[in-house]
Nucleic acid binder design. Structure first.
Lengths: 250, 250
DNA sequence: TTCCACGATTGACGCAGATCAAGGACGCGG
DNA sequence: CCGCGTCCTTGATCTGCGTCAATCGTGGAA
């Protein structure tokens, strides 16, 4: 059973003809500067468009699971995705949340090293890995971009290790809120109040805490007048300076 | 004050002439297959040799500190290096231990995102970052190799997040010993008993534990007859199967 | 509107690992 | 050979967070 819909948008793809004969939708992509496509010129972009399809994923549905053949890589264009790893007994570690512009699926083994699942309704661009690799041989700038992305992710992973290994629950939650705000700002989205679409359980699994501790810590920060919990999963960072301080200057 | 010695070994470097007129020392490099130099042909290797210098670093000395201009990248050729990040109050998270063949210094900001320090007496190859970047433009295989390395590090970082966020002290220590053994085997080094050159404090800072807990957990594994502590920082993995089981199949 | 299911919150209690505090082992310099 | 510093180990105690258990709030279905 397919849990997501796929549309082929590439001009070379016969599957689902797009309307009209205009330029590929990629040329109108509003978040291109955030994506793997950022460094492409018009000609290169056309060739990328030829191998891309789009995926819509309902909240809670898996994109892929750890251990599956890593046949595709993705770029999130809308919504929020979580990626996570599991221990044999079911303990979960969310290793990241991905937003519009973020890339995922990088794997140099033949299988995905982690699972990915939609936190909200999502749209993604999907690239067959083989075809993207061929394209990279011809367009080294894509490879450079990918290396750049990987370097950034590595730096973020190290920050996260510092958080997981050495920060208290209060520091973890403060860091998390500041992180979400920064990522929102990067995307040009309102960063205060910040949109927090994921559940307490997901937040706990990201920060190495339980849902109860996440909830209690939110309450505690609320009582300290550092945050306010607003409707629609929004959190106002009332004391952003203090939160940054608590987060430990990362 | 310089805390490490540098020798220029490149044939184009006038600094310290090497003996004789033979091929560059890189051609005799015994661990090339593990390094960034693995994919190079003879011509490319000569050009890499032209920009490399070697560094010897005494145990305990810093290679670079977080925040310094990231002017060089390195390949460890002998010994063990630790990389770590600090919180403002001094809490430390060791994000990795590096052995012969491992690459470090990748940064797309202008400064290092972490500090690096010798755990044992070390030898490293040092490449000026600018020059390596120029070389990468001409030899895409180096860039591919670097992307490959970054992907591997990313996968390792995700494993480590799972460990830090969700494993118990016993599981962490078991995972750590198995990790060291696997890395030793990769290098073609004896993996049982495994050489554990780093201090209990360093291990604790890597696993998100205190030195006391590390020590107690070693004792506990010893009493369970899963390991034996041998002289010269060696640990025999007497119950390797069980350790793998405890580690949680990573 | 009511009912139901699921996530969030709060409380009571327990425990894994941190903290505080002594020793012990070992290597190194004199 | 001794003295000293550093790292390791072990013990006693403490505590932050996990666990277990209700209860609350909310949104969607009928």
């Amino acid at each position: 059973m397919a849990v997501f819909d796929v549309k082929h948008v590439g001009s070379l793809s016969p599957a689902v003809p797009r309307e009209g004969a205009g330029p590929s939708p990629c040329s109108a992509c509003e978040i291109r500067s955030l994506t793997i496509c950022a460094p492409l010129n018009d000609i290169e972009q056309t060739q990328m468009a030829a191998i891309v399809s789009t995926v819509e994923l309902q909240s809670g549905n898996p994109l892929f699971d750890e251990g599956e053949p890593a046949d595709h890589v993705f770029n999130v264009t809308a919504g929020t995705v979580k990626v996570y790893k599991l221990l044999p007994d079911g303990r979960r570690q969310v290793t990241g949340f991905l937003f519009a512009g973020d890339f995922l699926g990088l794997a140099n083994q033949e299988t995905y090293a982690y699972s990915a699942e939609a936190v909200t309704l999502c749209n993604l661009c999907r690239f067959p890995r083989r075809k993207l690799e061929n394209l990279m041989e011809r367009f080294p700038r894509v490879e450079q971009r990918l290396l750049n992305i990987a370097s950034n992710e590595l730096a973020a992973a190290q920050d996260q290790m510092l958080l997981l290994g050495r920060k208290t629950a209060r520091e973890k939650i403060a860091s998390f809120l500041i992180l979400l705000a920064r990522r929102a700002r990067q995307r040009g989205v309102n960063d205060n109040p910040v949109f927090v679409p994921m559940s307490r359980t997901d937040i706990g699994d990201f920060l190495g805490l339980t849902t109860e501790t996440v909830s209690r810590t939110f309450t505690q920060l609320k009582k300290s007048n550092l945050i306010r919990l607003l409707p629609d999963s929004k959190v106002e960072l009332s004391g952003r300076e203090d939160l940054e301080e608590i987060a430990g200057g990362f």
